[in-house]
Amino acid sequence: MRYWQETWAVAQRILTELVRRRRSLMFWCIFPVTVLYLNGLILAERANITTAKAFETAAPSTLVGAALFFSCLGGSVATVVAEREQHTLKRLFMSPLSGLSYFLGIFVAHGFIALGQTLIVAAIAIFSGSTFQGVLPGALIIFLSVMAYVGVGFILGTQFARRTEDVNALVAAFGVPLLILGGAFLPTQLFPQKLLDIAQFNPVFHMNEALLGIVAEGKTIEEIGGHFFFLAIFALGVTLLGWLSYRRMLQVERRL
């Protein structure tokens, strides 16, 4: 009960701040919409398929490959860095707030943002005539993707990004290549074999392939087993590392 109250307090605070600032929320709405339209229209034209089919194929990679990356990973890093910059982390350290609740609060807040982005992407695709399957396993993959992104965001925010400027640099330096290699902007079928071999180590690639397989191609969890397990293990691993990073940050930054 205590953890839940703390978690919900942290999540609600992050969401209230986002609503107050508006700008980030607007960008996080605009971004998946433009990426989906660009991906969908290019795919329809070059692959010579219907718009509905193109949007069906483009929606999963647009969502987990691009939109959630920036909102959940970038957002988590920004949340931790902002707390550090405005020194509110100190106040949290002095309070009885547990590290677990803090992490879960950030996760829940970004889960809500992910839910909003999912609804936007799905609504546009469905409006264009696309149909999706495997809602529950699809939701599970989105859940694991959010967990993975928030976990990585926590690690970057607590260990590497000291100031707001660092967030942009980190996301640009590591994020954009990972997204391209994950198939967020270009279908992985176009990749040369060497790049495909490297992509096997990229969690974004597995998120894309898993969600694409389930919701667009109607596959089962067993059929996308490799991608799913990679994603699940990665999500759990970075969550654990995120927790350890938070503990380390506590040791380093506890002083007033």
Partner: peptide
């Protein structure tokens, strides 16, 4: 048992005064 007012004004700038207080009240259960 302890309440601390540090040297800096440690508040959430975009939250209202009541929201800032309410947030910490929730953290303290």
């Amino acid at each position: 048992l302890v309440g601390v007012t540090p040297q800096e004004n440690l508040v959430y700038p975009s939250l209202t005064c009541a929201e800032n207080l309410n947030f910490f009240a929730r953290i303290y259960g």
